[in-house]
Write a protein that binds this DNA or RNA. Structure first.
Lengths: 348, 348
DNA sequence: TGGGTCGCCGGAAACGTTACCATTGCGCGA
DNA sequence: TCGCGCAATGGTAACGTTTCCGGCGACCCA
């Protein structure tokens, strides 16, 4: 099994069809100037031999791989896997393949990933940078000679167009929503504060609190559930205890929800909760959880479209450099009001 | 920007370093017989030019792409995206790239995907076939001349080794669990019955019911939530109403749970519920939901290891054909008992 | 009827790399 | 002192395509 019988080559097809290699190449690429009769013979030979063009040889000659890359922290993350799904769909429509590389938010793996993509001569790629400010990444990306678009997190220095959700306004909006409901002691549980998205959300939270003349209470050390638990316990024991929690990340939302449930703290009566990023059962759980919803599909779709516009455009008019690079798409988030913020009771 | 400045070639590196192309090739591939001094000069030239080997040319020469493929119904599905994550991780460790292609369970897209992978001369791939019995797929796979392993669903005819979870026993076990709790009118809501996994689970359910002398009640028409709702309503209105539901698929579990909640049916007092496949909040929701858990990571890991064993092994001893092809790994599932089957009340 | 154009086709170079073989020194045993 | 083997290196032929270019009929129009 898995015998190494060697693939048939174009030359063999040509011989079998009794034509020149050029002719075979022409019928494969649907170029005109070939007699229907000849074409039929070639097609028959192709079928008989089970011939499939050798991609490597094509690339070597033509300098186009019809392949794009996707560099993300994790492909198991529902956010990125959804993006990947739409990206691969659109790529396929254009006749492109998708190569996926994960970084776990480590710059070293990220650099390695980009280099690998260059080596494979991808025609372009989408990247969700671990660190927007990284000089190394920036210089790598300028050296790359192929369209790049940043997804979910921009890269500083206008080195590539980016498609991101408006984390700042999303968080500001959610915080304001809590404030409008009369909550005053609103805490913010962040997750990895070194990430661009989380940082922006934290900024939005702080801006909203400041605008309302309230004191921001941020806890940036929430990585796992036990940390979450002790943080929440502490907040509730204070003389002036927390009356609302804004979580900046999916897993932290779930952790906080579990902890509050386990402690028997009524939501939203004692403590209200809003989470950033929607998830599967947010609306099913009791109480249902109010969240900031990100336009995930649209993020992926926009990134893909941007990339392919550049891919096609590069051979055409080629819009001026700055116009391309500065292209920053900011997508709106939306608040999904449910029970955990006190907006409405759940039916039961 | 994205200037097409052409990549530096090995020959240019050679010229700049004042050596022959062979020597440069040798230092790149870490072959011996090269003076340290020469090596240093070459390395400097490489760095100065920012040279990266042209993958296409390498492939054309050496017939190895160091690339593997993954063909799955959807990459947005948490099950497959988790598999993809571990697969790409292991591939990376071996210095391999991963190309992802989705099929949406359509045979046409599947065939196209496999052909694309062949064209790209991947060294092997993992596939989750839409239809295990498809003759077309089987013949395609025998023609493929490269190691293939089937994931989550086998392919008939021993044409490739497979790594699947034991859906039959998993479902049987869950059904038996309900029976042991004293439930008798146990319904089964299936989802896409044409899929191998669902079919196996349904068989397991039926076997367990038959063994207990109970009448199986299968509803195979559950695709969306409204269908789910009407099915459940009907089942509860019968003279001898359902007292337990076994859902064969994640989304159906969630739908059923929502419907029961909305109808005010107490779980598990009036109707018990067990779902196939664990999901994020299954343990957080009230009542928490008992599920059959699949060894997702292990599935991915095993498939990857199997593939790479064949990849490496092909150059080595090459175990006899049948031994390879018949290799069928069956991984055990586990029941996670929670509140919805009546096993234990939720705390608080 | 002759020259120019056009449609169809094939030969061969080129793409960037690897691998085979040839070529050089050089130390060393006879 | 003379080969002989070995380490270090370079030349060059492939790998399978595409593409440029050139050949060869046939057709059209004067």
């Amino acid at each position: 099994m898995t015998k190494q019988k060697k693939h048939p080559t174009l030359k063999e097809v040509a011989k079998r069809a009794g034509v020149g290699t050029t002719t075979v190449s022409r019928v494969i690429n649907a170029v005109e100037h070939v007699e229907p009769w000849t074409k039929a013979r070639v097609e028959r030979a192709i079928k008989e031999l089970g011939y499939l063009p050798n991609h490597a040889a094509r690339v070597l000659k033509g300098h186009k791989t019809r392949t794009i890359g996707l560099v993300v922290p994790s492909i198991a993350d529902p956010f990125f896997s959804s993006c990947a799904e739409v990206l691969q769909g659109i790529a396929r429509q254009h006749g492109f393949l998708l190569i996926v590389l994960t970084t776990h938010n480590e710059s070293a793996m990220e650099r390695e990933a980009v280099n690998t993509l260059i080596q494979h001569r991808v025609d372009g790629f989408v990247i969700s940078p671990a660190d927007a400010e990284s000089d190394e990444l920036r210089s790598l990306l300028t050296r790359v000679m192929v369209p790049v678009v940043a997804l979910d997190r921009p890269v500083a220095g206008a080195v590539a167009p980016s498609v991101v959700a408006d984390n700042f306004v999303g968080a500001e909006h959610a915080t304001h929503h809590l404030i409008a409901h009369g909550y005053k002691r609103i805490a913010c549980l962040t997750g990895e504060i070194e990430l661009y998205t989380i940082r922006e959300r934290a900024r939005g939270y702080q801006a909203a609190m400041a605008a309302a003349g309230l004191k921001a209470m941020r806890n940036t050390s929430i990585y796992d559930c036990t940390a979450c638990e002790s943080a929440i316990e502490k907040m509730l024991k204070e003389p002036d205890p927390v009356d609302a929690i804004f979580t900046l990340k999916n897993s932290v939302t779930v952790d906080a929800f579990e902890v509050l449930q386990r402690m028997g703290v009524p939501i939203p009566e004692k403590v209200a909760l809003i989470g950033y990023d929607d998830f599967q059962l947010a609306g099913t759980v009791r109480p249902s959880i109010t969240v900031v919803q990100q336009p995930i599909e649209e993020l992926g779709k926009t990134a893909a479209e941007l990339l392919f516009r550049h891919l096609k455009g590069s051979s055409a008019v080629a819009m001026p450099a700055e116009a391309k690079a500065r292209q920053q798409v900011l997508l709106k988030t939306s608040l999904i009001p449910r029970a955990s913020c006190g907006c409405r009771p759940d039916p039961s």
